[in-house]
């Protein structure tokens, strides 16, 4: 090992790691600190999209006061919460069942894995369009099929009650990424444990409950927390489903006019944030309040994740 004795050499050696980090450190400044600090700053100002580059007016706490009175915030937060509470567990359970099935199918595992993973890679816009088509009330194939067996299918994306469940179906179609993580985790469960449990007379369910589940529980927790964080930014599918499913777009109204259709049922928090900033209202100051709140919620979940999974840092 070359010995560097001079002070300058040691200094240079201590600086070397930072040369690797320069782009990433700039990135942290530009994409984490700058947006956070300026969002806080904007949230005390009146700032309109059409006057974006002009200095904003200070209006104190007005934006924050309105945040607590705005019924649209409650609507949007409720929708997002619905997705967190329903979509996340459904996707995890769905992915786990699929992964268990895959692990049974020994020889054809690779084939099935490809098949189940593929939808997860489909562009979200494309997948959403496909689902709107698939679930079209009246003439869509799903309702046609249901009608053939005597069930009157719901209106799916056109019904305020069914629009969110329709999006869950879309989410279940794309469980491939979770499934792959679960398949890997299931393979790591020690075979000896299963054998020992089987010798003790444990049935299939008991072995799953007392052997498999505890072994993969960290992976499940990881999936749950990242799932929640994913739902906090749920945008594309909700936006595209509502704009494609809605029949009425007054020419020139802009695509954001259709977001939330039907009856605001798919209007998630990030969608509201987008519409209030980049729709005709252009209330950037107020939207910054929404950003700051979303930031706090997202960081809270991230910190929970980090506390639980210190291995990330090891």
């Amino acid at each position: 090992m070359p010995t560097i004795t001079g002070g300058a050499g040691r200094y240079r050696r201590r600086l070397t790691p930072y040369t690797f980090m320069i782009p990433a450190l700039i990135g942290l400044g530009l994409f984490l600190f700058y947006p956070l600090l300026s969002s806080i700053w904007f949230s005390f100002h009146r700032m309109h999209l059409v006057n974006l580059t002009q200095p904003p007016d200070f209006i104190g706490l007005d934006n924050w006061k309105f945040f607590f009175e705005d019924p649209n915030v409650i609507r949007a937060a409720k929708n997002t919460l619905w997705f967190v509470v329903i979509m996340v567990p459904m996707r995890i359970v769905g992915a786990l069942i699929t992964a268990l099935l895959l692990n049974q199918a020994k020889r054809s595992r690779g084939f099935y894995r490809t098949l189940f993973y593929l939808p997860a890679l489909a562009p979200p816009v494309a997948a959403t369009v496909a689902f709107v088509l698939l679930l079209k009330p009246g003439t869509g194939p799903v309702n046609t099929l249901l009608a053939n067996i005597g069930i009157e299918g719901p209106l799916w994306f056109n019904d305020p009650l069914w629009a969110k469940p329709s999006l869950v179906l879309l989410g279940l179609w794309g469980i491939g990424d979770l499934m792959i993580i679960f398949v890997a985790a299931l393979l790591d469960v020690p075979v000896e444990l299963h054998e020992a449990a089987a010798l003790d007379g444990a049935g299939v369910w008991q072995r799953f409950r007392y052997v498999t589940l505890p072994s993969i529980s960290p992976v499940l927790q990881f999936a749950a927390i990242t799932g929640v964080i994913g739902m906090l930014q749920y945008f594309t599918q909700a936006a595209v489903a509502s704009s494609v499913a809605s029949g009425a777009v007054t020419g020139g109204g802009g695509i954001a006019n259709t977001f939330g259709y039907p009856s605001g049922s798919t209007f998630t928090y990030p969608l509201y944030l987008y519409v209030i900033s980049f729709g005709p209202r252009g209330l950037l100051g107020y939207a910054s309040v929404l950003s700051v709140v979303l930031f706090v919620v997202a960081v809270t979940f991230t910190l929970i994740l980090l506390r639980r999974f210190r291995t990330f840092l090891r």
Binding site: F31, L32, S39, Q233, P270, S291
Partner: peptide, 28 residues
């Protein structure tokens, strides 16, 4: 590599990874 601030940087990068893009949209 070993350097001062490495763990903090890692935590921050994970935070950034988890951050919804909508949060930084207006400033960006």
């Amino acid at each position: 590599l070993r350097w001062r601030g490495r763990n903090t940087t890692m935590v921050l990068i994970i935070c950034l990874m988890m951050l919804p893009p909508q949060v930084s949209t207006i400033p960006m």
